[in-house]
Design a protein around this nucleic acid. Structure first.
Lengths: 233, 233
DNA sequence: ACCTGAACACCGTTCAAGT
DNA sequence: ACCTGAACACCGTTCAAGT
């Protein structure tokens, strides 16, 4: 049942290991479980040793976000053909970000809510290299500057809403199942009954289906359509 | 300049005052400043006294979210005419939620990221009464059950992405100005220069404009158009 | 009935001291 | 060079005790 290996003790400690172990810890036990002291223990070292490699807790959280979102860089600097390839490009980047949300659902709220370094970096595309590639690709695909910026804004807004809802929903789903598994009878907070909300009660089966993946693809298609209308107008 | 009145000391303490003071405290000093001990001090009481009125810190956070999102209830139970009024209704609810984000930017990330009570409650519409009214209004406006659920999903996703980005962006903006005001020379993290990102540098003026309000209205219009296409298809 | 003091386990962070 | 022990200020929470 382990988790959190405590292999190293001396010398082999470095910043990457600290951040990587922190990500593991958050993935295994949630954000609230991440303290400097527990992280130290997970690595096999006292908490104070970590201060050689990260500049305190805030810096650690920042580093986690940076590390986790790094995979988008590879997607964002993809080369596209000269004509129309921007749609494939946006698809590619969108799916790279979605993969981050799936792989690190516990970290994604951090990606979503931490203030970016610059006021015009918009989560979840909060990395200068990524945004540079993004804007360069669109402008060189024929977007005007205004259009590229508009697309950037619409795209980030789409990703943030869609993916944050996905991870939140799946988290709640898992939590609910856990309660039920532990013998949590039939209902949750028995004081307010669902019977007071007949429409919800009636639609509950439909509301309970997790359509996150299809929703994402459909909303992405619609977004691309809207951007296309803007560009070819 | 003050904030955090310490008027009451005995008897006049109750749950509403605790929650209201907590919201004030978060508004004035940020989420990180909210501890049971500091909240107690702000009220004029020891932290332990709060446990009579809230069931610990998590319950307090939950209560803050509930209190702040309560205003949406009034908007959501609005009556609409029998034909086509659903568009005005969605406009009305959307603006009620946006007002929450504007009035409580420091609380909104909590609204956005805390797991709702049920897995099919989607932030920022995370209240049974609101969702009941929402779904009832749409179905009685002629939406099928599938369409009402689809609209609920698209609507929440739109609100979440749009508003979370607005508050994040404005927060970053304010933080940046503060740094500049305090004599923070010209650039932020001098190690990576913006000169390495020519497209960003070129688009910076356009990227720096806060178009949140217009964006919100435009994206809302587009959403209503898409929903209309779905319904009358 | 309502609040406090004392206590416990935990936290982030610093710094001198150890190896 | 790298890590630890001790220390400090702070935290959430419990519970017996005060009024």
């Amino acid at each position: 049942m382990g988790g959190t290996a405590d292999t190293p003790r001396r010398g082999n400690l470095d910043r990457d290991l600290v951040v990587a172990t922190a990500i593991e810890l958050v993935g295994a036990e949630g954000l609230n479980a991440l303290s400097m002291r527990r992280l130290g223990a997970a690595i096999g070292v006292e908490a104070m040793a970590l201060y050689r490699y990260v500049d305190g807790r805030e810096d650690l959280l920042e580093s986690i976000v940076e590390e986790v979102t790094k995979k988008v860089e590879r997607a964002a600097d993809m080369d596209i053909g000269p004509h129309g390839g921007w749609q494939a490009y946006l698809q590619h980047v969108a799916h790279a970000v979605r993969d981050i949300a799936s792989d690190h659902p516990q970290v994604f709220p951090l990606v979503a809510t931490r203030h970016p370094a610059a006021p015009w970096l918009r989560p979840p595309l909060r990395n200068l290299a990524v945004v540079e590639d993004f804007l360069r690709t669109l402008t060189s695909a024929g977007f005007s500057e205004e259009q590229a910026v508009t697309a950037y804004r619409a795209f980030t807004s789409f990703l943030l809403g869609q993916l944050l809802l996905t991870v939140t929903q799946r988290g709640a789903q898992a939590a609910t199942e856990e309660v039920l598994d532990e013998g949590g009878a039939t209902v949750a907070h028995s004081d307010i009954s669902i019977d007071d909300f007949p429409t919800i009660a009636r639609l509950q089966p439909k509301l309970s289906i997790d359509r996150s993946d299809e929703e994402f693809e459909e909303a992405l298609e619609q977004l691309l359509t809207r951007i296309d209308a803007m560009v070819s107008q």
